[in-house]
């Protein structure tokens, strides 16, 4: 159980959440972190279970999301790390943070660029996941079109500046970086009301 000071510090740091909302997110965190291994920390299998409803299988995006949430790189997501990352998904979080997070997510090999090979890998993974079959020619055509648009200096990789310009031109590509639910977290997790340390 977190102290009021810890909750208040996390709320303060997040710049998006109130203390009550951090408490509500703690309820969600506890639920996920006890789903497989009851140690109060989120392991990759638990994040996978929460996202896919199954702990089995391998998913490229899950690996990247987990890696970004796991700031200390100790193979678990602590509550503080959970709040740090999830706050980027708040509707009021700065657009700059969302652009930065999505860039790091797609920069699979963490080279500071989103390379064409990485984009292909993610397209293929998404098609596999949704059981859609496209010919290799069509995938290459999609990549050609995307890079024509995003890779303005034509070096076959997308820099952070190019990514920013691309996102501003096509805001829908980071639509998933905003979770409207986070604006009303306390309503989504009413159970926290019974545990709250904050009086009205």
């Amino acid at each position: 159980r977190l102290t009021f000071r810890e909750l208040a510090d996390l709320a303060d740091e997040s710049r998006c959440f109130s203390v009550n909302e951090v408490e509500a997110l703690y309820e969600l965190y506890k639920k996920i972190s006890c789903s497989i291994i009851d140690d109060g920390l989120i392991h990759k299998e638990e994040l996978q279970l929460a996202l896919f409803r199954t702990p089995a299988g391998k998913n490229l995006f899950l690996d990247r999301v987990f890696d970004l949430f796991d700031e200390k790189k100790n193979s678990v997501i602590e509550f503080e790390e959970f709040i740090h990352s999830i706050s980027v998904f708040h509707p009021n979080a700065p657009l700059e943070d969302k652009i930065d997070f999505s860039f790091r997510l797609y920069d699979l090999r963490q080279t500071g660029f989103i390379e064409r090979e990485e984009v292909k890998q993610m397209v293929v993974a998404t098609l596999l996941e949704s059981e859609v079959q496209l010919s290799d020619d069509l995938v290459e055509a999609i990549l050609d079109k995307t890079f024509e648009d995003a890779d303005t200096d034509k070096d076959n990789r997308i820099s952070k500046e190019e990514w920013k310009a691309f996102v501003l031109k096509h805001p829908s590509v980071i639509k998933k970086m905003t979770l409207p639910t986070l604006k009303d977290t306390t309503a989504a997790f009413p159970s926290f009301v019974f545990n709250t340390q904050v009086e009205d």
Binding site: L51, F61, T126, I142, L143, K145, D149, H170, S172
Partner: peptide, 25 residues
Amino acid sequence: KPESMNAFALISRSQGFNLGNLFEK
């Protein structure tokens, strides 16, 4: 649709990137 030729619009549909699922009851 023009979006269908946008690799990132396609990628953003992946379930692994759909954190909204965390909030599903």
